[in-house]
Amino acid sequence: MPFVVWGLAVAQALLMSGNILLVSVSALIGQQLASASWQITLPVACQFAGLIVATLPAAHLMQRLGRKTGFVLGNLFGLLGAWIALQGLLAESLGLFACGTFLTGIAIGVGQQYRFAALEACDNGQHARAISLVMAGGILSAVIGPNLAIWSQDWHAVSPYAGAFYGLFGLYIVALLLILLLPLPAATPVQPGEQVRSYGELFRQPMLLAAVASGMIGYGIMVLLMTATPLSMEHHSHNFPDTAMVIQWHVLGMFVPSFFTGHLIRRFGTRNVILWGCAALLLSAVVNLSGHGFWHYWWGMLLLGVGWNFTFIGATHLLTLSYLPAEKARVQGINEFLVFTAAAFGSLFAGQGIMLLGWVGLNLFAVPWILMVFLLIWRLNAREAVAA
């Protein structure tokens, strides 16, 4: 595997560590600064908004200027966002703090292109392994992010949360230096005369439709149930250490399979791996519906993580088979926009959903969406199935 892919895996780990660090403290800071209850999650909502806003422009910018320029700009947005968020926290200004999280959201949105950059740095036969390796960086982030949130509590005398933003600033500095050192692929602008299909033409391809749906539903359902799990466990009298353990194993379920998902795709095909991911998501819902004990949540969340891994990595690989080189910015950009919009809705609906539908109703709500993706992938015709 080329050196640049390993470098992008480390960059992905740094990005996700910063994301986990930010998620760990943003709602708590919102609660501290908010003057009304609806404002508590405003910084988190602004972070998602920044992520979504960045996805389409980032893909087109990188096609014009190259991956390195795009990633450097993304990290600069992250540095600026961390500094502004810190100033908002110290000035006790929710608006300024939310502006900072919006800018860090842009950085996170740009960084979602790391896995596509890894594809361009290796041969076609290594694509599945490259995607898996970059996503495996999440294992490192599962260790760095939460621990940095804990260690940084004593770094600033004014606020126990201010140190987190010094840590976030440091992560973006390291990521920026790493990106500057990596020999990333040059820009590949569309040549005069090259035809680029419209979104309507592109989405008439069953393979593209299935790939985008798999990424959207896999990510959206994962975020929905993951975000609702602590609320459900608290309602059923589980203590915080048990909840933390369930979420930790969920994160491991999300990223540990990345070490062999690429091998599974090469051996059994992308189509089958996505179908297995849908089966794991369905099994997770079944386990969640079967009881409220610790081990129900533990197994349910572990299966949810594995299901997300197979559907998301499989969807990314399937997506690369559905467009021509001149169309990559258009397809990658709209895919990221739709996938992370679904994730944002999952996050925002989780709290309201658990109150309106309950834990059982929320899992039942997830089932038909998973079955829809299963059907779309299953119905890929013979030629597309072979390609996948």
Rank of each mutant, 00 (worst) to 15 (best):
132 S>L: 09
87 Q>E: 09
330 R>H: 10
80 L>E: 00
217 I>A: 02
263 H>I: 06
176 L>P: 08
22 L>R: 07
199 Y>H: 12
384 E>L: 12
121 A>T: 05
160 P>C: 00
190 V>Q: 10
80 L>F: 02
249 W>G: 09
221 I>V: 15
273 V>H: 05
209 L>Y: 03
286 V>K: 02
127 H>M: 07
96 L>Y: 04
54 A>L: 06
199 Y>N: 10
49 A>Y: 12
326 A>D: 00
226 M>Q: 07
127 H>G: 06
315 A>W: 01
139 I>D: 07
341 T>H: 02
24 S>I: 12
321 L>F: 10
153 Q>L: 07
311 T>G: 05
158 V>A: 11
259 F>Q: 04
28 L>T: 08
156 H>N: 14
49 A>T: 11
22 L>E: 12
275 L>H: 02
349 F>P: 00
358 G>R: 05
169 F>T: 14
368 P>R: 08
49 A>C: 08
281 L>E: 06
240 F>A: 04
332 Q>K: 00
306 V>Y: 04
153 Q>T: 13
193 G>Y: 00
334 I>L: 06
381 N>L: 07
166 Y>Q: 00
378 W>Y: 13
74 G>C: 13
4 V>S: 15
73 L>V: 08
45 A>L: 11
107 A>E: 04
342 A>N: 07
270 T>L: 02
138 G>A: 02
68 K>C: 01
117 A>W: 03
179 I>D: 06
15 L>K: 01
72 V>L: 08
298 W>R: 04
205 Q>P: 00
299 W>Y: 12
152 S>R: 04
382 A>H: 04
93 S>L: 13
303 L>C: 07
209 L>E: 01
83 W>H: 08
157 A>D: 13
286 V>G: 00
379 R>N: 09
66 G>F: 03
329 A>K: 05
214 S>I: 01
196 V>T: 07
182 L>P: 15
62 M>H: 00
383 R>A: 10
112 Q>N: 13
11 A>W: 03
331 V>Y: 01
50 G>N: 08
33 L>E: 12
46 C>H: 03
228 A>M: 06
115 R>W: 03
283 L>W: 00
294 F>W: 05
60 H>Y: 12
9 A>C: 08
235 H>G: 10
337 F>V: 01
375 L>F: 15
145 G>S: 12
283 L>V: 14
125 G>K: 07
326 A>M: 05
225 L>M: 15
228 A>C: 02
290 S>M: 04
131 I>F: 07
3 F>T: 05
270 T>S: 12
249 W>P: 09
171 L>F: 11
60 H>T: 05
294 F>K: 10
131 I>C: 00
71 F>I: 11
309 N>C: 13
160 P>F: 01
23 V>M: 13
119 L>Q: 01
311 T>W: 10
307 G>F: 09
12 Q>C: 04
216 M>Q: 02
55 T>G: 04
172 Y>A: 13
27 A>H: 00
228 A>W: 03
359 W>V: 06
1 M>D: 01
271 R>K: 15
320 T>I: 06
103 L>N: 08
180 L>V: 09
157 A>N: 11
21 L>M: 15
206 P>T: 01
288 N>R: 04
383 R>C: 02
34 A>M: 12
166 Y>I: 09
344 A>H: 04
287 V>G: 11
73 L>E: 02
267 R>P: 05
177 L>G: 05
123 D>I: 03
236 H>W: 14
270 T>F: 04
